[in-house]
Write a protein that binds this DNA or RNA. Structure first.
Lengths: 249, 249
DNA sequence: GGACACCTTGACGCCGTCTTGACGGCGAAA
DNA sequence: TTTCGCCGTCAAGACGGCGTCAAGGTGTCC
């Protein structure tokens, strides 16, 4: 289990031009190499970051580690039913899922869509159409404008810029590790709301986690040490014993 | 207490109450009467509210007046280009738009999707598939749970925010323990209704419990002490001797 | 190859929460 | 009126969660 969710290239947003629009990350799941190759080439050419998985287990693993913005999923996988992959993803994320399938049968489509898929494209498909559907999926998943409006969260002691992935405090930038960032992001995106321990664990560490509350204790302590004026008496990262944590502006 | 088998209605609504969600409203836009008719019949049969428009101008007018939850839009309209209808809608709303079209051409699909459509279905279409795509569109357009609107329950002395898991009283937040929260939640989700002791015990403490009414006495006292203006003379957490408890707003 | 940053894991003390029992008040039935 | 059942109240003890610290392991960059 020594999987490091932390290998995320924080550089994607750490520096530079992220103000306009960050790169979107696509997870392509298909067992046919030529399809994967074609998709990867086309997506990379359009400035998407692309991860690939060739079976369902890998798909779930990669999704947990990389948190893609959209998933393109072939239903015919060697190790498990594609619908099961959909359910596995939907257990912890609302990431848009576009299903690819050679099956034209109506009930197949209905099953996949009702399991949580967002769109269903039958093979053979036109690349232009798939890309358009992908754009549509990404577009509607992006809250309102780009992140730019909701991106700045301020408190008395620090400010969080979600778009630029920066935390400012006392006139200087605060350095956060990838895991600390992820945790902070989930909390800050739910201001005032209680976020359950399970939800935090699954969002940050992946769907396989849900009971390792010691992780939360360690990382909440780190966040408080770096961001709270008095870490022993937190004003912004509130513990709700037995339930979860809450960010208060 | 076994005589209190009358908890049936409360049992049915315990969790599912807020789920007994409102009807979704669909706007069907098509100039072919038989298509409209087929859609209306099928949608009404599935408990959707349906409005219909037979041209683009009417579509925009009805959408503005009725605020549908999803739009099914035929691209071939007599008075204006369907893509213009999409743009007209997207100028002020993000309502999901499912395009119907007889055109299979890829660039048509791309144009419609990039104009803001959420999905594109070619005629002839299977009704089951269309309904599944419609469910998918409505599902992802619904923020998280429909809790967010029904989540605020107010009384004279305090307010309960179920989504944020917060209780407000006299301008300050009230701290509740997990058990207190759970109990409060079950009661508040059944406003005005009697909730049997057995049901409360099983919801909060688990299905193995059903007779430990002393737990209820202790925790109801805690809740009243924290939330009632006069804990000795409760106005919102009413005891029904021998049967259960009732929350009154 | 070595230094470094980061994630994981375990131990420990403290404090809040849950459980449990006892007691008294109140109302209904005998 | 007496008795019984049910409810509200209180307090004490057990229990588990939380914060904290530090060591071990792994990957990465120079």
């Amino acid at each position: 289990m020594s999987r490091a969710a932390g290998q995320e290239p924080a550089g994607a947003g750490a520096q530079g031009d992220t103000k306009g629009r960050r790169m979107y990350r696509v997870l392509v799941v298909d067992d046919e190499p030529q399809i994967v190759k074609a998709l990867v080439i086309n997506l990379r050419a359009r400035a998407y970051e692309v991860d690939a998985a060739h079976d369902g287990a890998a798909a779930l693993r990669v999704a947990a580690a990389r948190h893609p913005d959209v998933v393109v999923l072939d239903l015919g996988l060697p190790d498990m039913d594609g619908v099961e992959v959909i359910r596995g993803l939907r257990g912890w994320t609302r990431v848009p899922i576009i299903v690819l399938s050679a099956r034209h049968a109506s009930d197949e489509k209905v099953e996949a869509l009702d399991a949580g898929a967002d769109d269903y494209v039958t093979k053979p498909f036109g690349m232009d159409e798939l890309l358009a559907r992908l754009r549509a999926a990404v577009r509607r998943a992006t809250p309102s404008g780009s992140d730019d409006d909701a991106s700045a969260v301020e408190t008395e002691t620090f400010t969080v810029d979600l778009a630029a992935r920066k935390v400012h405090r006392d006139g200087a930038d605060v350095r956060l590790t990838p895991t600390e960032w992820h945790l902070l992001e989930v909390l800050v995106r739910n201001p005032g709301r209680l976020v359950s321990q399970k939800q935090l664990l699954q969002e940050v560490w992946g769907p396989a986690y849900g009971t390792e509350t010691n992780y939360l204790r360690v990382y909440m302590a780190q966040l408080r040490r770096k961001l709270e004026a008095d870490p022993a008496r937190p004003r912004h990262f509130i513990t709700e014993p037995g339930m979860g944590y809450r960010f208060e502006a």
